[in-house]
């Protein structure tokens, strides 16, 4: 029964993918999309095949992952630490939430020139931008998570005399974990997008630079350009998949993970009043 369900689930996904690729090729073959403007699916696949055998692609993937990973790690760690502190204190939360919301809305592209002036085209520039992009949305998520502590758990902890670091480790953090996990899952994609944008516009080494060089080389290199874009997309799917699996493993005890079907996410949570 479970096998059949899996077959249906993955079979339908495969079918949609094949249909999309077929439509792409069909539009190119029918001449609706000119090869000078957008390459055909087969030309892109050929370019992808050529790239897969070259060291340049894998070096670029490695460079992109370096900025992504370091930025996500620093931004994520800082957001969890600061978000917890802010979430635990009502005064801190109320006084800082406005500033956090403000910084959350600043597009990274707008601060890219500042990052370039400060760090130049370096890995640090990419890490700084990814950290900035990841930090603000995640810190809010962590605040909400910490503040949404189940009153029964809180009162039980109080009745049992659990306080201080122990309360944080066994009550607060597990309660906030699903929020943090959802925030992280979103951040994984955001970090990758920002990292590639930093490379594409700023010039840091990685997939973004490969896309830029292929685009500027002219129409003959469009298949290569879209092949790099496809690689970026596959990378995004893989990274999101890894995080989803890790989340399921780590939070298997949480009600949101227990249901067979996809559970509603605690992403857009209304901030706790007061």
């Amino acid at each position: 029964m479970r096998l059949r369900a899996a077959l249906v689930r993955y079979g339908s996904r495969l079918l949609v993918l094949v249909a999309a690729l077929g439509l792409w090729q069909g539009l190119s073959a029918a001449g609706i999309i000119s090869g000078d403007e957008f390459p055909s699916m087969t030309a892109t696949a050929r370019a992808l095949g050529d790239q897969a055998g070259s060291a340049a692609l894998w070096t670029a993937v490695g460079q992109t992952l370096a900025g992504w990973g370091a930025g996500l790690l620093i931004g994520g760690a800082a957001a969890v630490a600061l978000g917890t502190l802010i979430g635990l204190n009502r005064f801190a939360y109320r006084s800082s939430i406005g500033v956090i919301e403000f910084f959350k809305t600043i597009p990274v592209v707008a601060i890219l020139p500042i990052a370039l002036v400060l760090w130049g085209v370096t890995l640090n520039m990419k890490i700084a931008l990814v950290t900035f992009a990841v930090f603000w949305p995640l810190v809010i998520q962590v605040c909400y998570g910490v503040r949404s502590l189940d009153p029964v758990a809180r009162d039980t902890a109080a009745a049992l005399g659990v306080t201080g670091p122990r309360k944080f480790a066994v009550v607060t953090l597990p309660s906030a974990a699903p929020f943090i996990a959802t925030g992280l899952r979103v951040s994984v994609a955001v970090a990758l997008i920002v990292d590639i944008v930093a490379e594409l516009i700023g010039g840091g080494s990685g997939l973004g630079t490969r896309i830029l060089v292929a685009e500027n080389a002219g129409p003959s290199q469009y298949p290569a350009m879209y092949a790099y874009i496809v690689v970026a997309g596959i990378l995004g799917v893989l990274l999101a998949g890894v995080f989803a699996v890790a989340e399921r493993r780590l939070l298997h005890w949480h009600s949101a993970q227990r249901a067979d079907t996809v559970a509603p996410e605690p992403a857009a949570v209304v901030p706790v009043a007061s």
Binding site: L112, P113, L116, G120, V121, T122, I201, G202, G203
Partner: peptide, 19 residues
């Protein structure tokens, strides 16, 4: 050599001292 998208990005990197 460092490929970049625009001369503004190049000049900003020069201001940083890395180029």
């Amino acid at each position: 050599f460092v490929p970049q998208a625009s001369p503004v990005a190049v000049e900003a990197s020069m201001a940083s001292g890395t180029e």
